Computed example of a mutant assay.
Amino acid sequence: MNIEDFRNYCLNKKGVTEGFLFDETTLVFKVGEKVFTITNIEMFESINVKCDPELAIELRERYTSVLPGYHMNKKHWNTIVVNSDMDDSEVKKWVDHSYQLVFDKLPKKIKDVLVD
């Protein structure tokens, strides 16, 4: 997976916006103003995704490419090293999971606007 494929995949989701929240190289994707994934555009080596805490541990045990979230709450975030032992379709699955976790926690009022 490359940065363009990752970016396009994220932007094709309903209500997603992108921006540089932290600095000029850390690309952040949000739904309803809540972050669901982060990556570095200069060195696209990994992505951070939100994850159900029990699944987060399972993934870390299953893949060497999955680590506790770098600079994030380690209980709720994983860092996935791209182009490693997790194939692209699996990476996309966990981007989807992260997006859905964040979307599900949004207030109904915001969800309704995003879905229309």
Rank of each mutant, 00 (worst) to 15 (best):
N78E: 04
V113N: 10
N8L: 14
M1L: 06
L11G: 07
L21A: 12
V31T: 14
K111S: 07
E90C: 00
R62E: 15
V66Y: 06
I3C: 00
R62H: 09
T26L: 13
K30Y: 06
P107G: 05
S46E: 12
R62K: 15
N40L: 03
V16Q: 04
P53V: 08
D85T: 05
D88E: 15
I47R: 03
H97S: 10
S89Y: 09
N40M: 07
G32A: 08
H71P: 06
K108P: 01
D5S: 10
V49P: 02
V102G: 04
L59D: 11
M86G: 11
E33T: 08
V31I: 15
V16H: 07
L21F: 14
E42S: 09
L101H: 04
V91P: 11
W94H: 15
D88L: 14
E54T: 11
Y63L: 10
W94L: 13
C51E: 05
V35R: 03
I57G: 01
K34T: 07
K105S: 14
E24D: 15
N73S: 10
G32F: 09
F22S: 06
P107Y: 02
D5H: 04
D88C: 02
V115D: 00
D87P: 15
N12A: 09
P53C: 08
L67Y: 13
K109S: 11
E58A: 05
K34A: 11
L27D: 08
G32Q: 10
E42H: 13
F44P: 05
D116F: 05
K105D: 11
Y63C: 13
Y63H: 07
V49S: 01
G19E: 07
N83K: 13
V95H: 06
K93G: 00
W77I: 02
V35L: 15
D5N: 12
E58M: 09
Q100C: 00
E61C: 01
Q100M: 10
K92M: 13
N40F: 06
V82C: 05
K14Y: 00
H76R: 11
E90Y: 00
N8F: 03
H76S: 05
E42L: 11
F22W: 15
M86K: 08
L114S: 11
K108I: 06
F29T: 07
F6H: 12
T39P: 01
S46N: 12
K30T: 14
F20S: 05
T17M: 01
D87L: 09
Q100D: 14
M86C: 08
Y99W: 10
K111Y: 03
K75M: 04
Y99Q: 03
I47P: 01
Y70A: 05
F20I: 03
E4V: 11
Q100F: 02
L55A: 01
K93Q: 13
L101P: 02
F20M: 04
K108S: 13
K50M: 02
D87R: 07
T26Y: 09
K13V: 01
T25Q: 13
K30M: 12
E18H: 06
N78I: 02
E90V: 04
I3R: 09
